[in-house]
Design a protein around this nucleic acid. Sequence first.
DNA 1: CATTCTTTTTGACAAAGTCCAAAACTCGGT
DNA 2: ACCGAGTTTTGGACTTTGTCAAAAAGAATG
Lengths: 140, 140
Amino acid sequence: MRDPEATLRQHDLPVTAQRIAVLRAVSGHPHATADDLAESVREDIGTISRQSVYNVLNVLTDKGIIRRIQPADSPARYEDRIGDNHHHLVCRACGKTEDVCCAVGEAPCLKAHSHHGFKIDEAEVIYWGTCPACQKKKRS
Amino acid sequence: MRDPEATLRQHDLPVTAQRIAVLRAVSGHPHATADDLAESVREDIGTISRQSVYNVLNVLTDKGIIRRIQPADSPARYEDRIGDNHHHLVCRACGKTEDVCCAVGEAPCLKAHSHHGFKIDEAEVIYWGTCPACQKKKRS
DNA sequence: CATTCTTTTTGACAAAGTCCAAAACTCGGT
DNA sequence: ACCGAGTTTTGGACTTTGTCAAAAAGAATG
């Protein structure tokens, strides 16, 4: 995120210290949970309420400024990288999340299944596995 | 599910009325939530505790007899159909879930991304959209 | 049938998030 | 620079989904 303040103004959002700090936190800690982000923000500007973190994250998500990902058995995580159609690789053991470029180009299967009458707007892919650290732990 | 009782025995699970009823409920109500299933089971055998529903669902999931799917913003849902590599189509508005055959054959991208050092064991795909009923509701 | 081991039940608890009303702040006009 | 209107932020209570633990009840083996 180049300039959090400018980003907020571009979207007609009042600029507050909390919003700037949350944006910076999301930018600096990809795939962090709301709690992690609250912690970062507190280190940054001293204090913020839990509710405000949720408010800000919800507004930013609604406006499409950040993306929320919600793997099973994990609290929601947030990221900065949007619009590049990448997917995620999640460790079953520790929740570590990594980005994976979409190998197949632009949202491959979006149109293939337009039966059922659903209007599909996103194809979400999550690769489940075990991260290197947890593989090591399990062996020992 | 042909014969719930036989299925339980095959997996060395003691046969109880609750387990049989939960299996039947999952079979008869694909993509139902734990609460929905508890309700079905109660209509079937009269009464069951909330905890037992969770116990049974967890055991059955661990044994691979049923599958748990956990879309964002929705409680876990359970289904009977396993081992045929199908994916899901979820309505953002009402949570309605449908099966979608995997168009691309056997777990297409599983090997493509074996970098990162992760040991990947599953590629989960969820198509997000709006079901016909909710499209109609939104328009009116 | 009786014993043993597993399940079921009951009730408390935990995590993640939302709802609500009051206080504080931002923005735009003057 | 200030004021007023409308948003945000805060703090606290609450909801939902699910788990933990101990006691009571049930299934399976000999």
